[in-house]
């Protein structure tokens, strides 16, 4: 499904009571919102629930939406807040029971096609990166996912998270540095150095 959506038109349709307008919004943004929730929460079930909640909240307040920001920026903001709530909830629940620590974030979505050596290396890098991502703080993970996976520009990230562009840049920079530290021995450069020693 194409993610291109004529936002003003679809919003007008929604305001006129056309329920299929909201379906178009979900279809257009479901992958991006789910992906964000998945990277923020790790667990696929929680991610799906959080993504669903995001759209339900959006449905309830879409009539009050002021199109001074884009719809997807607004949806992202709801998704980020929903994921933070889920995180808090699961942190609270983990006080009372042992839960899976989110190790299942990786691998299950990866292709099983037979791979040559390069592909194998790239798989290793991807695995290492996913593991490193989990070790980042919530703040840094959210911002690096928005930048690197969703490809959002600095300005949109700033709008979603309600922070300055300067803060966005410095957090992205910090996230990259931390990822580099966490992935020591996994990046091809590091591996070459290790092998040469």
């Amino acid at each position: 499904m194409s993610e291109k959506l004529n936002e003003p038109v679809v919003l007008e349709r929604f305001k006129r009571g056309d329920t299929s307008a909201f379906k178009d919004i979900v279809l257009a943004y479901q992958d991006r919102i789910y992906r964000l929730c998945r990277y923020m929460l790790g667990d696929p079930h929680n991610a799906e629930d959080a993504a669903q909640d995001t759209f339900l909240k959006a449905y309830q307040s879409l009539k009050n939406f002021k199109p001074d920001a884009s719809l997807y920026t607004w949806l992202y903001r709801i998704a980020v807040n929903t994921c933070i709530d889920y995180k808090r909830k699961s942190a609270f629940e983990s006080l009372f029971k042992h839960t899976n620590n989110g190790e299942d974030i990786i691998a299950e979505e990866q292709s099983t096609e037979p791979s040559p050596e390069k592909l194998y290396e790239s798989r290793q890098m991807t695995d290492a990166l996913q593991k490193a991502l989990k070790k980042l703080s919530q703040k840094l993970r959210t911002i690096i996912v928005m930048k690197e996976i969703e490809g959002l520009p600095y300005e949109d990230i700033a709008r979603v998270l309600d922070i300055s562009i300067g803060t966005v840049k410095s957090r992205i920079s910090r996230a990259r540095e931390e990822l580099r530290d966490l992935m020591k021995g996994f990046t091809p450069i590091e591996r070459t150095n290790h092998e040469n020693r």
Binding site: Q30, D31, Y34, Q110, E148
Partner: peptide, 11 residues
């Protein structure tokens, strides 16, 4: 690596 990562889609 981020760029080459498989894009997760909604279920």
């Amino acid at each position: 690596t981020f760029s080459s990562m498989e894009r997760l889609n909604a279920p």
